[in-house]
Amino acid sequence: MKKLMFLLFLFSSSVFAADAIYTPWHNNLAIRGYDTVAYFTENAPVKGKKAHSMEWQGATWRFSSNENLALFKANPEKYAPQYGGYCAYAVANGSLASIEPEQFTILNDKLYLNYNADVQQQWLEKRDAYIELADKKWPSILND
């Protein structure tokens, strides 16, 4: 488990206390450019478009339509992923890791993202316990 978490950390973005929203090291796109509203409205990962984008919490958020952009502008906290878009499993285990936009779960109107399909499967097996752990560790984990 420690080896897995170390590997997850190696492939995560640069981590500083100001990085409340996960973005890859090579750009400033939240959720790697995917439309966070579409997870809720279409229950699917949908790529956002540069033409429908905005800055929020130090990251660039892209949307697939003006309608989704407007929904996000009206209530960004409703649509933003939990734990700043970092992997929910990693946060529960005291680490920060990147995500694959295709590995998501909507639960109680909250968006959770995971590092990859294998990690998501592990997270889903004890999802409620991992959410409880991650909720306790977030956002102080950014300062560790």
Rank of each mutant, 00 (worst) to 15 (best):
L111P: 04
G84I: 04
N93P: 05
I106R: 12
Y89S: 01
Y89K: 01
Y86I: 06
S95V: 09
Y130H: 13
E100V: 03
I99V: 06
K137P: 02
Q103Y: 03
N114F: 15
G85L: 06
C87H: 01
E125L: 10
D118L: 10
D118R: 08
G94A: 03
C87A: 07
Q120L: 10
P101H: 12
S95R: 10
P139Q: 11
G85C: 09
K126C: 00
A90C: 06
Q122R: 13
G85R: 04
K110D: 02
S98L: 05
Q82S: 07
R127T: 11
W123M: 11
K110Y: 06
A88G: 06
I131A: 13
N114A: 14
A129Y: 04
D109P: 04
G94C: 06
S140L: 15
Y83W: 04
Y115L: 05
D109N: 14
W123A: 09
Y115A: 08
Q103P: 05
D118S: 12
Y86F: 10
L113G: 03
W123I: 05
W123D: 07
G84Y: 02
W123T: 02
D128E: 15
Y130V: 09
E100Q: 12
N93L: 08
G94T: 05
L113M: 12
L133K: 14
R127N: 15
C87T: 02
L124S: 11
L111N: 05
E132H: 07
L107A: 10
V119R: 03
Y89G: 01
R127I: 14
L111V: 12
